[in-house]
Design a binder for these strands. Structure first.
Lengths: 339, 339
DNA sequence: TATGAACACGAAACCGTTTTCGTAAGGTTT
DNA sequence: AAACCTTACGAAAACGGTTTCGTGTTCATA
């Protein structure tokens, strides 16, 4: 890389002090018009750009927000990033993105790297493995050093920090209720293992909707997908019951369910209704298109970053952690057209 | 945020100089065993972490790679990011991700921000609007300042830098040839306007395959999608011709084509074969599943970042820009099952 | 003519770390 | 006893910028 021009070189070349150059470039009233013009012309000509590192060191802030995600090739998370970037940008921040790849070890490492001062604050969603281990010690340092920190979507109560979540219980309830209103009686739930808390919450909503209608919870209709194994056979199993509705907690599960239904010669939505979660492209473009719960990832990202920047910029803010709950909407499509 | 402990505070507390502390923490032989132990114990106890900004300023490197993408809620680009992050991480780098949102203006701004020294090098893919304007002046600064810079996928010859691309012509050829081998004669091409160079290249491959079979290029079968308008009607128009094959340059177009075919009562793949580009989730989960050209985005990201880090770390590297061409594969699925 | 602004600029400290170059104290050779 | 070598540490400069606090002119006012 070429040697960059600095304030010092400008000062030397023009025979003034670096303070003068600094002030001139900021158009300070302390500097005479002629000197300012000379310096600014020189800086322009040699394309002077202030060195960000020096500024960061002096100001003790980086204007960078760290983001740690379980994965990126994933519609919901990429939507959230998009929202974070949008919100950050509006306030003059950039984002540094890292991935835990759902691994506990990588999450710990990444968190350590980001908390060494390269970012002003961190937004993250917890890795699946970490949720499974229930090992949250690596967050203690973050909290005790009072690094601005916001968790979203996959959060846990044990960590005292700001949080942004969707109303998972309410969403699960809405989805299930919609199926019930469609006249469905035997509704399967395809969910994650219970340690993934969003899965557990959506399940609560599912159960609440059933109980309200005096329908017993049949655990035979509930599949907790083990992602280390092939997904499809696990879902196929629940189809052995004579189900007429499926509520899947993400769109991959929903798409798999639909495929299986078709293979079994069942018509969607005539014989069976299917509803997914996360409004991604699969749901939109499959045929029939799939009714889903729209999670508003973009909004979630924006809210998370707004919360974080408040913490960063207002030291005097209320100490108590805030929790923002984003409501989710039912997006009606073909897979649950009422008969 | 809590005040962090620095070398200076340690020095003051222990009544030694900061040079001694710095050396002691690095286990230098210059420092006596007792002093080292005292200092290290103190540092451990107060959880001392070196300030990254100070190190970056001193070393004149950030160990951060800037990435500028047109968008992120997009299967291919998110896959590439994933590859970049993976490759960067292995070499001890982090990535700072920005988006141009396909906008020329935002691209210019972002490029300016990233080239002020906050990153050691930049990887990017050009925004649609920029390609349309053909205005590449903002890259001149990057090139003349010799900032390590790699373009991928959406690249242009005018910019002298390292590049990583897929063999778009070859891929278009492969796709079209596959349709021809399936016995298709009237093959529609659904592509981007010509200024998006990858679209243009894939079209070349399409035309080459047809010409080889002595089939005239019928421009009536070629649709250049205007993304500012609704996509579906534009594709519907080409179905007015009695086509029996579709080659779409991305999976959204392919999915749209399939939906239209179904609505017209045509069976895929019996009456019409469809092939897409970018092996994303839509292709995999639609029914019938869609044959696509797999672009190997992950590999592409890795190669791009490897190239970049070579530039960053080897000043003495060959000056001439390198170009890596990644071969793409046909991923056979149901939408082109031979009859 | 003395007083005091107003103006235009420079010196120096500071952010946190590393690294080069002293140097004082003590020990070992001749 | 002179010459030299270790050992163990500190002072200072450097990275690039900002900011506070002088300070020497010049010019207007009392």
């Amino acid at each position: 890389m070429k040697q960059k021009i600095t304030i010092k070189t400008i000062a030397k070349e023009l025979g003034v002090s670096s303070s003068t150059v600094s002030k001139a470039l900021k158009d300070s009233h302390e500097i005479s018009k002629e000197t300012k013009e000379r310096i600014q012309a020189y800086a322009d000509h040699y394309n002077y750009k202030p060195n960000h590192l020096a500024l960061q060191l002096r100001n003790q802030k980086t204007k960078v927000i760290g983001v740690i995600l379980p994965k990126i090739v994933h519609h919901f998370f990429s939507t959230v990033i998009s929202g974070i970037e949008d919100g950050a940008n509006k306030k003059g921040y950039n984002i540094m993105v890292c991935f835990s790849n759902e691994s506990y070890k990588k999450e710990v490492e990444t968190l350590k790297v980001l908390s060494n001062g390269s970012v002003d604050g961190i937004i993250m969603s917890i890795a699946r493995e970490t949720l499974h281990n229930k090992d949250y010690d690596h967050f203690k340092g973050i909290v005790s050093e009072e690094i601005p920190f916001v968790l979203f979507d996959r959060v846990v109560d044990e960590i005292l920090c700001d949080k942004v979540v969707v109303d998972d219980v309410g969403a699960g309830y809405k989805a299930t209720k919609h199926l019930l209103e469609n006249g469905r009686k035997k509704i399967a739930l395809i969910t994650t293992p219970n340690h993934v808390n969003v899965g557990a919450l959506r399940r609560q909503g599912y159960e609440k909707a059933l109980i309200e209608q005096y329908i017993n919870i049949n655990t035979g209709l509930i599949v907790e997908i083990d992602e280390t194994k092939s997904i499809k056979p696990q879902i196929e199993k629940v189809f052995e019951n004579d189900i007429d509705g499926v509520f899947a907690v993400n769109e991959i599960y929903a798409a798999n369910a639909m495929r299986i239904a078709k293979e079994l010669g069942k018509s969607v939505p005539n014989d069976i209704s299917i509803i997914g979660f996360t409004d991604g492209l699969i749901s939109e473009y499959s045929s029939p298109s799939i009714t889903t719960i729209a999670q508003h990832g973009f909004t979630m990202g924006q809210q998370a970053v707004d919360l974080l920047i408040q913490r960063i910029e207002n030291d005097a803010i209320d100490f108590r952690p805030k929790k923002i709950v984003i409501s989710s909407d039912l997006k009606l499509r073909e897979s649950t057209k009422s008969m």
